[in-house]
């Protein structure tokens, strides 16, 4: 198991890095707002969710320091996200077919 490390390995993240991430997040916000103006039919929601996921990836990795955490944390979060994905997709087994 890799959860053997303790609090010793301290990562100090530069202010500069945070500012860079913040700027990227603002840029993505701008993109998602401007793209939403274009009529892409069903793709609109897909694109909005993809951009939101990219933004979340930045927040998780940099602001929430997931990059510097053990693999266990990453496994945990995948378990949580997969669970949520299962809940959503199996619910849609009902709704996306003729009832």
């Amino acid at each position: 198991m890799s959860d053997h490390h303790s609090q010793e390995n301290v990562h100090v993240v530069d202010y500069g890095k945070y500012i860079f991430v913040w700027l990227s997040l603002l840029a993505f916000t701008g993109i998602t707002v401007s793209v939403s103006g274009i009529n892409l039919g069903n793709w609109t929601v897909v694109i909005a969710l993809v951009i939101a996921s990219v933004k979340s990836w930045y927040v998780l990795n940099y602001f929430m320091h997931l990059r510097h955490e053990d693999i266990v944390f990453k496994i945990f979060i995948s378990v949580a996200l997969i669970t949520l994905a299962i809940f959503v997709s199996l619910t849609f087994l009902d709704y996306s077919f003729v009832r």
Binding site: F87, L90, L93, S96, V98
Partner: peptide, 22 residues
């Protein structure tokens, strides 16, 4: 255990696909 919940709802009016899969 987290994949089977709708077997409580077979008579609730779900889609046929959902019934089979669950």
């Amino acid at each position: 255990g987290s994949l089977v919940w709708a077997h409580h709802m077979f008579t609730a009016g779900m889609s046929d696909t959902a019934q089979f899969v669950f």
